[in-house]
Design a protein around this nucleic acid. Structure first.
Lengths: 140, 140
DNA sequence: CGGTATCCTTGGAGATACTG
DNA sequence: CAGTATCTCCAAGGATACCG
């Protein structure tokens, strides 16, 4: 039909992307996606959310053990951040020794869904990407 | 039925998460999700992918103009990374002045879908998160 | 136009030690 | 157990200048 590849791309999708990237409220200069990425586009946030989804209501040290490679400090920092963003609740049980449980909120669980899509994509295409990388490095 | 909240969470979902987080090939110690996040969990990768999805086959400076706040250096670095991962193609048109076009590969487009879910989540819940943050900062 | 090269700063993040 | 505090270091990334 003489349409270019770009035109072939569903208009609907372009509209969606445009909406995602739109700066909301030009007066504030606030951009939702920038704001989001500044806070969540970190390895640890994503991993902690996934592990919280897996574990249910883990304690601090349970999380620390399961999230491979995370330091005590980064786990604490990440959890505080998620908590203040309303994604995670922190429940202190007044016992000795102290017991603290973390759990995803409804908001957190909705983000978990998205993180899972991301994780599934990563698993599905891991080899493909690795292959591309090796090819690219050979060309250097 | 006397099931706890944790048990209430679909078993299917837990299985999925476990699979995502599984270390593949214990001999290599290779974990797909870690590997993925190390490369893609950056603001610029995600934004560039979205803008590529929006624009189709933009030129370098078109991208630079549309991706708010990105420096020339980071755009170049990000594009080279995406290219070596097989997500983006780079087409040089031998003209004067030179013209270079970037475009998502099929693999890149499949990641775009995931990035869009992420972006839509960010838009949908931006206010909610902002509110939670304000509340948290008031408690300090 | 479409980049590299270089310098330089900042903050992300590990290691270690201490505490309610 | 579940953190905080402090020090430190490295690399992500901005600014600037130059090149094919």
């Amino acid at each position: 039909m003489g349409v270019t590849i770009a035109e072939n791309q569903p208009v609907e999708r372009r509209k969606k992307i445009a909406k995602i990237l739109a700066e909301k409220g030009t007066n504030t200069g606030f951009c939702a996606i920038h704001n989001f990425l500044d806070h969540f586009a970190t390895k640890w946030s994503m991993l902690v959310i996934l592990h919280l989804g897996l574990a249910g209501k883990p304690r601090f040290n349970e999380l620390k053990m399961s999230v491979t490679g995370i330091s005590q400090r980064m786990l604490a920092v990440t959890l505080r951040s998620l908590e203040s963003d309303g994604l995670v609740t922190r429940t202190i049980h007044p016992e000795i020794p102290p017991r603290v449980e973390y759990e995803l909120t409804a908001l957190g669980r909705s983000l978990l869904d998205v993180m899972m899509s991301l994780g599934e994509w990563a698993n599905r295409h891991a080899e493909e990407i690795l292959k591309a990388r090796k090819k690219a490095s050979r060309l250097n």
